[in-house]
Simulated scan of single mutants.
Amino acid sequence: MKTNNRLSFALIMIVVVLLLLGCSNDTEKETLIIADQFGLAYAPIEIMKNQGFLREALDGAGLSTVTIEWKRLGNTTAIREAMLSEDLDIGFVGIPPFLIGVDNGMDWRIISGISQTPSALIASSKAVDSLEAIDDSTRIIVPQPGSIQHILLSMYAKRMYGDSKKYDHQLVAMSHPDGYTAMRTGASNTLHFTTPPFMQQEMKLENATVLLDGETCFGGPFTFIVGICPERIYDNPKIYTAFKNALEKSIEFIGTYPEDALEVLSESYDYSEADLKAYMDHPQMIYETDVRGLDAFVSFMVEEEILSDSILNSDLYWGSDNE
């Protein structure tokens, strides 16, 4: 009888400990670290920050002690490394590098889409005035190999030339601001696959030529940027839900109060409201939570052996509604 009592007591204590651990999961996090990248595709994050939507959502969830830290990183490689070291909790990336991360064992999944975005491959000199003028000396600036710009270019090369790797040996990895600086030098052998506002700024450069756009590469509209987080954040339901609600509110704010959004973003990005309005009025600049084109990216990248077949059975979204 005493043995049974001891066993029962031990089992009760285990249950109590597990319950305490489960209850503490929402409160153990002291700082929520969020990173976006460069460009207007990430405008909802600036709205969230400026309007205090995330702070409001966390406070409403009883998480007023959780502080928020905002970062801006140059590419998905930096986001992946920061997330692996737990120096980052939520990030925003293009679909292809997100998929490559999943295929390589990252436990991140999609929280939500945030934007469709125009993109263009731009030449800085009359020396390259068409795709046919590209030769082996031409350098093509993209954020990183495996970036959405790289995969879009590969899609076009596969469809037009039967070789998805046609331009791979010409890629140069640079952030969008650094790419814009390189384009301003007017180097005759430099191209940049970029997005607003850098796209429009480069199009104003003397001798600039648009050689190709993203929707032509893809074959139609697609989501450019998604929000992602690892399992440790999804398993923190109050924080996860607070962030998702704040993101949805930020996207809705841009559509409902466009003039207020322009004022906020003009200050954040240091552009005039007139210029910013011209950038954001582009018909391909759409802020929404839907994720479009994911299956097409997966199919192409598996077919070209950029991803393994195992990605086809991967859970790519957090939340049972999307799985």
Rank of each mutant, 00 (worst) to 15 (best):
I45F: 13
G22S: 11
T27D: 12
E273M: 13
L212K: 02
L294E: 01
E215W: 12
L58P: 02
H176Y: 10
R159Q: 15
L276E: 09
Y42D: 08
Y271R: 06
T223Q: 04
R109T: 00
D36T: 08
A43S: 15
G22C: 10
A43Q: 05
N4I: 13
I140H: 01
G91A: 14
E288L: 11
A120D: 07
D235Q: 10
I79G: 10
N313H: 06
A78S: 15
Y287P: 02
M174F: 13
W108P: 00
R109G: 00
R80N: 10
A57E: 09
P197W: 01
E215M: 11
T209Y: 03
I311K: 09
L316V: 11
R80V: 05
F9R: 15
S164N: 08
G52N: 06
A261D: 03
G214I: 02
I45E: 06
V66P: 00
T195K: 06
P96S: 09
M160Y: 02
Y180M: 11
S85T: 14
Q149S: 14
S175C: 10
F53T: 02
A208S: 13
K277R: 14
V226G: 05
I134D: 07
V17Y: 11
V210W: 01
T67G: 10
F224T: 05
I311V: 15
I151L: 13
Y287I: 06
D136L: 12
T289R: 08
F243R: 06
T67M: 07
A123P: 02
A187M: 14
T185R: 15
A173M: 05
M48E: 05
G52C: 07
L191P: 00
P258Y: 03
G179R: 07
V298N: 00
D89N: 12
I141Y: 07
F38K: 04
L205A: 00
I254Y: 05
E304H: 04
I111K: 00
V172R: 10
L276C: 11
I79S: 14
D163H: 06
G186Y: 00
G52I: 02
E202H: 03
I68D: 01
Y234C: 09
M199H: 01
T65M: 13
T31G: 08
L307V: 11
D275P: 03
T65V: 07
A78N: 11
S85H: 12
I306H: 01
I45R: 05
A78P: 08
R139S: 07
